[in-house]
Amino acid sequence: MKKYGYRQGNADHTLFIKRMGSKVTLLVIYVDDMIVTSDDTEEIKGLQRYLSSEFEMKDLGGFKYFLGIEVARSRDGIYLSQQKEDHMAAVMRILNYLKGAPGRRLIFMKHGHIEVNGYTDANWVGNITDRRSTLGYFTIIAGNLVTWRSKKQNVVARSTTEVEYIGMARGICELLWLRILFIEIGFKPQGSMLL
Rank of each mutant, 00 (worst) to 15 (best):
Y119L: 10
W124P: 01
I44E: 03
M109A: 14
L60E: 08
K58W: 02
L60W: 04
L67V: 02
N154W: 06
G136Q: 03
W148N: 04
E164K: 15
L60S: 04
E115K: 14
R93A: 13
L80C: 12
G103D: 09
G77R: 04
F66D: 01
K151Y: 04
L67F: 03
V155C: 15
R104A: 14
R49I: 12
D121M: 04
E43A: 12
L51Q: 08
Y97M: 14
R93M: 12
K58E: 13
M92T: 11
G62W: 02
L95D: 12
P102L: 02
F138E: 00
M57A: 09
R93D: 15
Y65W: 13
S74M: 06
A169V: 09
A72M: 11
E43D: 11
R170A: 15
T139R: 11
A169H: 08
L80N: 05
S159Y: 02
T139I: 02
V71R: 09
T160W: 01
I141T: 05
V146W: 01
F55T: 01
G118I: 00
K110I: 00
L95N: 13
E164W: 06
E70W: 08
G167M: 05
F63I: 06
T120D: 06
M57K: 08
V125K: 05
S53H: 05
K58G: 06
V116H: 04
E54N: 11
A90R: 11
V146M: 09
L135I: 12
L51A: 09
G61I: 03
R170K: 13
N127E: 09
R49L: 11
Y65P: 07
A72K: 15
V116W: 02
K99F: 00
I69M: 14
G62T: 00
K152G: 06
H111S: 15
E115I: 15
T139W: 09
L47S: 07
E43C: 08
K58M: 10
W124L: 07
L47V: 05
V155A: 12
T147G: 06
S53P: 00
E43H: 05
R104K: 13
V91Y: 10
T139S: 14
P102N: 01
V156R: 08
P102D: 02
F55P: 08
I128R: 12
N144H: 03
E85N: 12
E162N: 04
D76R: 15
P102F: 00
G136I: 05
N154D: 12
D76G: 11
I94E: 00
R73L: 08
N154Y: 02
L47Q: 06
R105I: 10
S74V: 10
E42L: 10
R131H: 08
K45C: 05
E54A: 12
R131D: 09
T161K: 07
K64P: 00
V125T: 10
R149T: 09
E70N: 10
K64V: 10
E164C: 06
S81T: 07
T129M: 10
I141K: 00
